[in-house]
Design a binder for these strands. Sequence first.
RNA 1: GCUCCCAUCGUCUAGCGGUAAGGACGCCGCCCUCUCAAGGCGGAAACCGGGGUUCAAAUCCCCGUGGGAGCACCA
Length: 473
Amino acid sequence: MSVTTRFAPSPTGYLHIGGARTALFCWLYARRHGGRFVLRVEDTDRERSTPEAINAILEGMSWLGIDYDEGPLYQTERFDRYREVIDRMLEQGTAYRCYCSRERLDQLRADQQARKVKPRYDGRCRHLTEPPADAEGDPVIRFRQPHEGHTVVDDQVKGRVAFDNAELDDLIIARADGSPTYNFVVVVDDMDMGISHVIRGDDHLNNSARQANILKALGVEPPVYAHVPMILDAEGKKLSKRTGAASVMEYRDAGYLPEAVINYLVRLGWAHGDQEVFTLDELIEYFDIGEINHSASSLNPSKLDWLNQHYMKTLPAAHVARHFAWHLGALGIDPGAAHAPNIEAVVSAQAERSKTLVEMAENSRFFYTEPREYDEKAARKHLLGAGDVLDALTNALAEVEHWKAEAIHQAVTGVAEEQGLKMGKVAQPLRVAVSGGPVSPPIDITLELLGREAVLRRLAAAREWVDQSAASH
RNA sequence: GCUCCCAUCGUCUAGCGGUAAGGACGCCGCCCUCUCAAGGCGGAAACCGGGGUUCAAAUCCCCGUGGGAGCACCA
């Protein structure tokens, strides 16, 4: 059987992280089986579906690198088709007109709730042959749900799930204004698009029986269903805009690489033995629906951090640098400015001491702008009284022939020996002088990246600061 | 309320009748060290409860408990 999967988000303002994982699963499954992956936008809710909301989803997909073979398809463009199917069902008798007023329906529901039974339509219009005399307004169309027997969904994740058809009522497939409803359009779309595998959130598991029944009424074999569990926040609660971390774009903005997010997401609810890190090719080779977990999983932010750092360290520096540049820009830094250090070298130097690109950008500020002031504690500890060391360093560094880490390292250790000091007593004043604070990549690499001119300029400024501080105390 | 789903370290998970219940993140030690990290080594840490089935149960069944989802002229 040829595989066609689909991702069908409704545009609600952003690409939800859970939706992104579902999309990823669908995408991987299609790729794995040489099938097709379709993107379908469920925009029948005209209120919520804005161009911005649709763009947010497309942007999220493209940032993650999840491409699609077909689409985006929009349901709002398919109303004629839905109408056609509804008419056919009316003709065949698998659907019927219901004239019950909203008031009656509300009353019915209220009564049932009061009697503590499951609210459902009582089928009053199910056997009507013509409109009742007291009918007011346009009728809705309901699906004639079979009431006997069971509908079995052989879910690829949850296993065999049986629904008693008596539990299912005749759901509305078209409103009084003629517009089709969700459970119906999904069915028509899945049928028309030849979807073979419906992989979606398990909040839809209950819908699958009725959808399967509509499909059968249309004479079509239902697709294979796979309902994947939800993603919860770190506290085990439902993710929301309020708690944050729900939108894919928040992860980009927080400094995560798409590779890290993909790897993190795929391991949330899916595992391949003990392997933690996967290339895309490996995922395509290994991914299978049957290995998806049955239960919801909570976000583990520190594990994402770890993966992100892993990818920052191991992905080609040039690739990481492209994302890094974007974050530098967000800080108002132009990585392409004259005298700016080689950005790939900065990435290599900072990757092992940053969890995110945002952190990397903040820690790398001093490479691009001279420190306006020194970290107070660090300056007091390392700069005060270090005038002689700074002088010696200035002299030694001015002499260095090839401004490379190895030569710089020799010069610095030379000063330490000559002054009878431990390396720390030399490197730390130097570090504070050039970076403004107590933390930076190895001092020789830091200096190489900064360039001799900038280093000597910063040393002179530090020397001046030492004198001034000494004078004022 | 009814229907459906779920349940292994704090978290992500491996396990699919016989294991000292494994790995990862995080945490705690030690080593390395010019800072911060990274890295190496080691450690603490789990089968929700109760019944069955079986020679044997984290694994299979039932009940309970606890989470979650669905029950709209929303998607």
